[in-house]
Design a protein around this nucleic acid. Structure first.
Length: 676
DNA sequence: CCAGATGCTTTTTTT
DNA sequence: AAGCATCTGG
């Protein structure tokens, strides 16, 4: 009963003392260290409103975030709460989209106005092409193109040397005095550098631009060019940055150009930094006041989301770390029910118990399906839960994994559109040609060698038509080319000539895959040309968003990877497979302390999503202590967990063991729905 | 040289 | 889910 009362209090527009301090801050730069559920987004929104109400023009405020989702959400919420004229021109952007805008608005300085942006898959394809088959290091060991790419990208994002990047990415962050690593780096560094140099030249020749280039080019220009610096500095008075803990050194570099003439207001939580593999360093947030001149930091510690019991467990997890997160969240809502640990013998048992509890929350306790969220460390960990949901008729939405824009059939149809928009796009040619029957890797490469010499698209198509290939190969490209200024219609035409072949490729899957193209066509309606469409969708795939929003208001339970669940919350929260060697993963244990700490933060994010009830699932074999003989067990997060913090249960569910057809009879397995 | 089948592997993910 | 290696057979 009292739970409903609290919800009303939380929605009040009042701010607590800490939030008020941050919102009305009058010094130069401020870092707000905001723990999970402490009103991080609300504080940023109130800050913007406060500035606008005190006479700052909305267009003089820039809201930056790492993700589109958070940037968009903040601006939308401000617009909802404020007079429309006042917020006119308020901008919320990602670092990437902001840099793109700078590039486009300064064509004299940035000459790369016409280029194809490579996404991660394309980038990998480039490296594959450049490495060739069986690429080996000097000791004869294979190096995957993917690992060279990761070395390159990490060096760029973390702004570190090639040697440091190899040490981090190839040698699992070996220490400086690890001799075998140093020797490897010494002998093989040039190998990496050569491929990377080739890649840089290749990009230039093919007019390719990758995500890192977008930031890097602007960052360099800001350093070197006074004109760009003046332009950028003249635009804003205030920069508000969300998710500061995910900001990497390259992005810090960009922010540094604002130190002098703008006021930064950054919000983040070091304990929720889970993007280290991408160059984000949560420690930089600790050094904020050293890095940024004239800056201060403040803290938000009152949590409005969870009960104290849930926070006690979360605080405990951080306190067991050797790192000092200095975090102790206090629940505004007071006490509730202790979290539960549930032991299972196999993952089907786990999936069965989770879905039973979801059903019960709805049938017995009158919650919605959407009050339930199942979290997993990996995307494939959700498959068994999904299967159980289907079996029991629970509506669900999956967050995480590859989005629609990454899926094979969409990329198949985008490929010919990319060719039309940049006929030198070798990666697109390769994908497109290989689709057709009779054309494999070798033939495709031969055709491309012939075509890439041509002067323009028309010459290419003419040559292609005279190659005695299946007619659809050239006719698809022709019809897209003819409809260049009607991208939506060009998709329709492309599909008409490709669908027979796609049907053959995807077989029974084609039934559901083909439905996605209606959405693609709708998105394409807002673009003026094929060219515009393909360049826009890479930076802002509205497709995935429109798909997610369509399920947003529906009463679905959420199945999500932990990474995708950041910012979400749910009354009932189930964290699956928190077992030894799964969480932290085996790989993290091998990679050493930094990786394990990142896993810890990951689990912390998961725990703090829960509002009322938290269930942590694990393999029954994970029960041991930190004094265990087994090496991997020592790193297990839930060792020595006191029963004061958590209630321990083992699934002993006869109905599951003996009877496949569950009749719907309610058996109170863990007896923990008693709020009163 | 290509197609198709099979089995294996896969951190996580955003731009 | 989807890419990979690997094999068989055309």
């Amino acid at each position: 009963m009292f739970l409903y009362l609290y919800i009303n209090i939380v929605t009040m527009e009042e701010l607590n003392e800490q939030q008020k301090y941050a919102v009305t801050y009058n010094g130069k730069h401020l870092l707000v260290l905001a723990g999970a559920g402490t009103g991080k987004t609300k504080t940023i929104i109130e800050r913007a409103k406060y500035l606008i109400n005190n006479g700052t023009l909305a267009k003089r405020i820039l809201i930056l975030s790492f993700t589109r989702k958070s940037a968009r959400e903040i601006v939308e919420r401000i617009k909802m709460q404020t007079n429309a004229i006042q917020v006119d021109g308020l901008v919320g952007q990602t670092f990437h989209s902001w840099c793109m805008a700078v590039i486009k608005n300064n064509p004299k300085i940035f000459k790369q106005s016409e280029f194809t942006i490579l996404d991660e898959d394309d980038r990998e394809s480039c490296f594959k092409l450049l490495c060739g088959k069986n690429f080996k290091d000097k000791g004869g060991k294979a190096i995957s193109p993917k690992s060279i790419l990761s070395v390159y990208s990490y060096a760029m994002n973390a702004q570190c040397s090639m040697s440091d990047s190899i040490r981090k990415k190839i040698f699992d962050n070996a220490s400086q005095d690890d001799e075998s690593a140093s020797l490897y780096i010494k002998t093989n560094k040039s190998l990496y550098e050569n491929i990377i140099k080739k890649y840089i030249c290749y990009k230039e020749a093919r007019k390719y631009f990758d995500y890192d280039d977008i930031l890097n080019v602007v960052s360099k220009a800001l350093k070197k060019n006074q004109e760009v610096r003046d332009y950028v500095n003249s635009m804003y008075d205030y920069i508000l940055v969300d998710e500061m803990q995910d900001t990497n050194p390259l992005q810090y570099e960009l922010l540094s150009s604002f130190y002098e003439n703008c006021k930064l207001f950054c919000v983040g939580d070091d304990a929720q930094s889970i993007y280290g593999f991408r160059g984000a360093d949560f420690k930089s947030i600790h050094k904020f006041t050293e890095i940024v001149p004239n800056s201060e930091k403040c803290r938000l510690v009152t949590n409005y989301r969870s009960t104290q019991e849930i926070l006690d467990l979360s605080n405990w997890l951080l306190s067991k770390s050797s790192l000092n997160y200095d975090k102790k969240l206090v629940a505004y809502r007071g006490n509730g029910v202790k979290p539960s640990i549930i032991h299972w013998r196999d993952e089907w048992e786990e999936a069965n118990d989770v879905t039973d509890k979801i059903l019960k929350s709805v049938s017995t306790y009158n919650y919605m399906y959407s009050d339930n969220m199942v979290l997993s460390r990996t995307i494939w960990g959700l498959r068994k839960i999904e299967a159980a949901c289907i079996k029991k008729g629970i509506p669900y939405t999956i967050y995480g994994g590859t989005g629609l824009m990454q899926s094979a059939h969409i990329r198949d149809v985008i490929a010919p559109m990319r060719i039309v928009s940049n006929y030198q796009d070798e990666i697109a040619w390769m994908r497109y040609l290989k689709l057709w029957k009779g054309i494999g890797e070798v033939t495709a490469a031969r055709i491309i060698d012939d075509l890439i010499m041509e002067e323009n698209l028309d010459e290419c198509l003419y040559k292609l038509m005279n190659m005695n290939l299946q007619e659809e190969i050239s006719s698809t490209l022709l019809s897209i080319s003819d409809l260049q200024y009607n991208p939506s219609e060009s998709i329709t035409k492309a599909l008409e000539s490709m669908s027979d072949r796609l049907n053959e490729i995807y077989k029974e899957e084609w039934v559901w895959r083909k439905d996605d193209f209606q959405i693609l066509k709708n998105v394409a309606l807002s673009s003026g040309s094929v060219n515009e469409f393909v360049s826009e969708y890479v930076l802002d795939p509205k497709l995935d968003e429109s798909l997610k929003n369509s399920g947003k208001d529906e009463n679905h339970c959420i199945l999500s990877t932990i990474h995708s669940a950041k910012g979400l919350e749910s009354a009932f929260c189930y964290i699956t497979n928190v077992s030894t060697c799964s969480f932290p993963t085996n790989r993290a244990i091998l990679n050493g302390e930094d990786a394990i700490e990142e896993e810890r933060r990951c689990l912390y994010v998961a725990l703090t999503r829960a509002k009322d009830r938290l269930y942590v699932y694990r393999d029954i074999a994970s029960v041991h202590t930190s004094s265990s003989e087994n090496e991997s067990d020592k790193f297990y997060f839930l060792n020595d967990l006191s029963e004061e913090l958590i209630e321990i249960n083992t699934i002993n569910d006869k109905r599951y063991l003996c009877d496949e057809e569950y009749s719907g009879e309610q058996i109170n397995v863990t007896n923990n729905f008693n709020f009163d």
